[in-house]
Structure formats: structure tokens, C-alpha cells
């Protein structure tokens, strides 16, 4: 780690101001990604703005029939939330699959989506449910938020404050974890919503994406068998020591099938 100035603001306004005032200031949420990055000296921020004391950023509530989850809400809280279980149980299930107990107790929704790890789970949940990301400046549709590998639409001085999830008719998440990291080698979030069927895939490509062929097939028939006939291309999918692109393409189908079966 290099030296930095540490701040723990109590309000969002204060945090925004600190971020704007210091050019190399960075936000700290659960620290599950950022602390290791600092320890390995891969980042050298002048200031660290810890979001954990800002009450308005944390918490889960029902809103407009759907859910609004504050940016600093840890994964464990989402997984254990009765509200989430009732309104979008698939999201609680997704949060339950993230990392291990320690990671879930500290890692946050805002940190996860701002980091946009290509193998993270939440991006699939957001895109699959057609969620809206709320920031200190604006609202951004999930699909526009995730722009590339570890890249988002966030500006340097912008803070994610919450995510709003509309309630789907049916939804489920199926994840094939990397045995080592337990991140997703492939994660597929399937939702039947008022606006149609959405299938969001994480882990398989450089960034979360919607699998249109699967969406088309499932729009016609929302059943596991409907997935069988679809061919998922391996083009452009990730390839590493854990899984080839071909295997990932195969897993997309298997996980989609399982998610549809679980959605019921």
C-alpha cells in the first residue's frame, strides 16, 4: 500500500464534495476488491473516501412494486432479506452465491457493479431484471451502465447511490462457479417480465450481455426444453485456464436451462 488520506464522511453530499475536491480520490465500499488492489500497490489514490458511514446509502426497501437497494448494502444482507425473498427471490439467491461468508458480509452492491468484474454476479441480475442504477448525478439503465470489461458509465466523480429493481413475473439465476475463485465462469439470469423475456449472461464474455437467441426462444416458450434447440456461439467468449470459449458457450445453455427450470 502507498500512503493516502482516509475520510469517512457521514453524508452523500460530503462524499461527493471530497471526491470532487481531490483529483486522485477514490471511493471505498466493502474493500473486497479495492483493498487487495491497494495492498498490491496497483493503485495509488491520494484520498480514500469510505462510504460505510453514510446511512442514506444503505438499506433495502420496496418501491413502486419493486425493490430499491442502497449501494453500500452488503451481499449478505440482500441474501437474508425477507423483502428481497418476497419481491425478487432470484436476487437473494444470486447474492447467496457470491464468494464466501466473509466476502458477502463486507462486499457491497455498489462496489460490485462499479467494479464491473466480467465474472461478477450482480451485473447479470441488474441486466436480467432491467434494473436502474441511481447515482449522485442521474439514473442509468443497467444495460447502459455496464460498458465493458471493468468499465461503467460512471464519471470520475460520480457515486452509485442505489439500484432499483422492477418486480419480474418469474426469475432465477443459475451460476457455474470457478472452483478456485467462486466467481462465475458462467452465470445466467433469466427473467420473464412485463416487457418480455430477458436473459443476461455474466462470466462468459468481457462484460455482461443479453443472449438474444435465448430470449427469442424463451419468449415463444418459457420452458427448459426451449433452450435445447438454440445454438450459442463461442465467438468472442472468454477463454482462460479454467474454461475454453466452447465450454462457456455450452454452459450458457445448461445454466439457462437450469435457470428457467428454477424460475418455474
Amino acid at each position: 500500500m502507498y500512503n493516502f488520506a482516509y475520510h469517512r464522511p457521514r453524508t452523500l453530499a460530503e462524499a461527493t464534495q471530497l471526491l470532487a475536491a481531490n483529483e486522485d480520490a477514490k471511493l471505498l465500499a466493502g474493500g473486497q476488491t479495492f483493498i487487495p488492489t491497494l495492498k498490491q500497490r496497483l493503485a495509488q489514490p491520494s484520498d480514500l473516501v469510505d462510504l460505510s458511514a453514510i446511512a442514506e446509502l444503505r438499506g433495502i426497501r420496496e418501491e413502486g412494486g419493486g425493490l430499491t437497494i442502497g449501494a453500500t448494502t452488503p451481499h449478505a444482507e440482500v441474501a437474508a432479506s425477507e423483502v428481497v425473498r418476497r419481491v425478487v427471490p432470484a436476487l437473494a439467491d444470486l447474492a447467496e452465491t457470491i464468494g464466501d461468508t466473509q466476502v458477502r458480509n463486507l462486499g457491497t452492491l455498489g462496489g460490485s457493479i462499479s467494479n464491473n468484474d466480467p465474472a461478477a454476479d450482480y451485473p447479470a441480475g441488474l441486466v436480467g431484471l432491467g434494473a436502474t442504477v441511481r447515482t449522485s448525478k442521474r439514473e442509468i439503465a443497467a444495460e447502459d451502465f455496464f460498458t465493458g470489461m471493468f468499465e461503467t458509465a460512471l464519471a470520475e466523480d460520480e457515486i452509485v447511490t442505489a439500484v432499483h429493481f422492477p418486480k419480474p413475473e418469474k426469475a432465477a439465476y443459475a451460476k457455474f462457479p470457478n472452483p478456485a475463485s467462486r466467481y462465475a465462469i458462467v452465470g445466467v439470469f433469466v427473467a420473464r417480465t412485463a416487457g418480455g423475456v430477458r436473459v443476461a449472461v455474466t462470466g462468459a464474455g468481457p462484460c455482461v450481455f443479453r443472449a438474444r437467441e435465448l430470449e427469442n426462444a424463451l419468449s415463444a416458450d418459457f420452458a427448459p426444453e426451449a433452450v435445447e434447440g438454440v445454438s450459442v456461439s463461442a465467438d468472442g467468449l472468454n477463454e482462460d485456464i479454467h474454461a475454453s470459449a466452447e465450454y462457456r458457450a455450452h454452459l450458457i445453455k445448461v445454466m439457462a436451462k437450469r435457470a428457467v427450470a428454477a424460475a418455474g
Binding site: P179, A180, S181, Y183, I241, H242
Partner: peptide
């Protein structure tokens, strides 16, 4: 796992599965 240039690809618990 090493790549052909001799870099250890499994240099952390993210990739080396205990």
C-alpha cells in the same frame, strides 16, 4: 500452470484452487 513464457498463471487463490 505456466504459460510458455514461464509466467505462473496460477499465482493466487483466484486461479489456484485449494
Amino acid at each position: 500452470v505456466y504459460d510458455d513464457s514461464g509466467q505462473l498463471l496460477t499465482g493466487s487463490y483466484m486461479d489456484y484452487c485449494m
